[in-house]
């Protein structure tokens, strides 16, 4: 039963090989989606290209439903899969800072690395900036540690917080995604920029 490579007798090389192969699929999917183009990514925030929304929600729901089915059939123990810890203040403020970085730079770290792989020079600058961002965080950590670790709720699951089963929550998420996809297709027709979306 999965996760199959987390026991302490798993050799390090095997775990790192899995990471490398999973990374290849990750990078391939991002690049095929067109995420090596910052102007295409930024279209999400001006309505002319909503690929980000479509890929992001499709991927998340695919993995969510896939893992729930695998759990149901006894192929994976979801209690052993990492669930992000919820530090309320840090999640919100960190997210707001990330959003500002997104609209300035046009990439997120994953898409920046993807764009670097095909030769985008702006992506190199984005990642050098990211390197300094990580350094600034480390150096400023003593001053912000109290905030960063405050309001800790534990690895809370959203469906439990709402009092729903995982399956019902997944169904609601799918319905929400379909509505958003429909709105996204309408936005692309309303604010078309074929010069950007077709030439990247």
């Amino acid at each position: 039963m999965g996760p199959i490579l987390i026991s302490s007798d798993t050799p390090l090389w095997l775990s790192l090989l899995a990471a490398f192969l999973i990374g290849i699929a990750f990078g391939f999917a991002l690049e095929q989606a067109g995420f090596s183009s910052s102007r295409k990514l930024a279209g999400m925030f001006y309505g002319y290209d909503t690929t980000v929304l479509k890929v992001f929600f499709t991927a998340s729901i695919f993995a969510l439903v896939g893992s729930l089915l695998m759990n149901y059939f006894g192929m994976i123990d979801l209690d052993l899969v990492f669930v992000n810890n919820y530090y309320v203040g840090a999640a919100i403020v960190g997210g707001v800072i990330m959003g500002a970085g997104f609209i300035m730079g046009g990439f997120c770290p994953g898409t920046g690395i993807c764009a670097l792989s095909i030769g985008k020079i702006d992506a190199i600058f984005f990642l050098i900036g990211g390197f300094f961002g990580a350094f600034l965080f480390a150096e400023s950590y003593p001053y912000i540690a109290a905030f960063a670790t405050d309001y800790y709720e534990g690895p809370v699951k959203i469906n439990e917080w709402m009092g729903l089963s995982p399956g019902v929550f997944a169904l609601l998420l799918i319905i929400a995604a379909v509505v958003m996809f429909w709105l996204a297709e309408k936005a692309e027709k309303k604010f078309p920029r074929p010069d950007i979306t077709n030439d990247f």
Binding site: V96, I97, M98, G101, F126, G129, G133, A134, F137
Partner: peptide, 9 residues
Amino acid sequence: LGGLFFVYG
């Protein structure tokens, strides 16, 4: 600047 903000956040 975008990279700096993003990774800090």
